Simulated scan of single mutants.
Amino acid sequence: MNRLTTSLVLSGALVLGAASAHAALPDEATLYKNPQCGCCDEYARHLEALGVEVTIIDDVELGDIKQQAGVPYGLGSCHTIEMGAYWIEGHVPLEAVAKLFEEQPDVDGIGLAGMPIGTPGMPGPQDEPYNVYAFSDQQDEPFMTLAP
């Protein structure tokens, strides 16, 4: 096989892999946020680019939503998303969201504490590992680490 053929085969495989990962995502999501937070709107745009229709609700008590979702105390972020049967807390990289829906673990959701630079909706380069956690009933456990 020559280089061009090999490149085309590998490119095709990557495109098919990405398409199947995105196909596993639900068609709709609800994003709960503070009305003044613009980075949350940017995260919604990333989901919309994957074909997810996002409803944004910014007139709700976020603490109540986080408690309903089961987000562990101290591991919250600026927004909480209800997506399919799961909750997504904060600026979770889309690679981790795709993994959640591909594997469908028995958890309430996944999250990434704070607002790390370089995540969807947060400008700048990734300069440290993202430690995505899974959670159920306010208890967390490691889900995956994404290296810079």
Score class of each variant (00 low, 15 high):
33 K>I: 05
85 A>C: 02
125 P>Q: 13
114 G>C: 07
109 G>F: 03
49 A>H: 14
71 V>T: 11
17 G>V: 00
147 A>H: 15
128 E>W: 07
140 D>E: 15
96 A>S: 12
57 I>T: 11
129 P>H: 07
11 S>G: 09
6 T>Q: 14
75 L>C: 01
120 P>S: 09
52 V>K: 05
51 G>H: 06
55 T>E: 14
115 M>Q: 06
103 E>W: 09
79 H>F: 06
143 F>K: 07
18 A>N: 15
19 A>G: 04
143 F>M: 07
108 D>L: 02
14 L>E: 13
49 A>D: 15
14 L>V: 10
132 V>R: 06
99 K>M: 11
24 A>R: 12
148 P>W: 06
87 W>V: 01
115 M>Y: 07
107 V>E: 01
47 L>I: 05
89 E>G: 05
4 L>Y: 08
126 Q>L: 12
132 V>G: 04
100 L>V: 13
54 V>T: 10
35 P>M: 03
137 D>K: 11
130 Y>V: 03
78 C>G: 04
43 Y>K: 05
22 H>D: 13
136 S>V: 00
147 A>M: 14
83 M>P: 03
28 E>M: 02
28 E>G: 00
35 P>H: 11
59 D>I: 10
72 P>N: 11
105 P>R: 02
100 L>E: 06
8 L>M: 12
42 E>R: 15
11 S>P: 00
38 G>N: 12
131 N>E: 15
15 V>K: 11
9 V>K: 13
27 D>P: 03
20 S>R: 12
59 D>F: 08
3 R>Y: 08
80 T>L: 04
53 E>S: 15
20 S>T: 14
43 Y>V: 00
143 F>A: 07
42 E>N: 12
77 S>I: 09
90 G>A: 11
142 P>K: 09
94 L>Y: 03
31 L>R: 02
67 Q>K: 15
111 G>A: 04
81 I>D: 01
102 E>C: 00
31 L>M: 06
102 E>L: 06
35 P>A: 05
13 A>S: 14
70 G>T: 01
1 M>A: 13
142 P>D: 08
44 A>F: 02
29 A>W: 02
147 A>F: 15
97 V>E: 07
88 I>P: 00
86 Y>L: 03
97 V>I: 15
2 N>C: 13
12 G>P: 05
125 P>D: 15
57 I>H: 04
140 D>Q: 14
54 V>G: 05
64 D>K: 12
75 L>S: 11
144 M>E: 08
82 E>F: 00
37 C>A: 04
142 P>R: 09
42 E>C: 09
123 P>M: 05
132 V>S: 04
103 E>C: 10
71 V>R: 01
78 C>N: 03
95 E>C: 03
140 D>T: 02
110 I>G: 08
51 G>W: 08
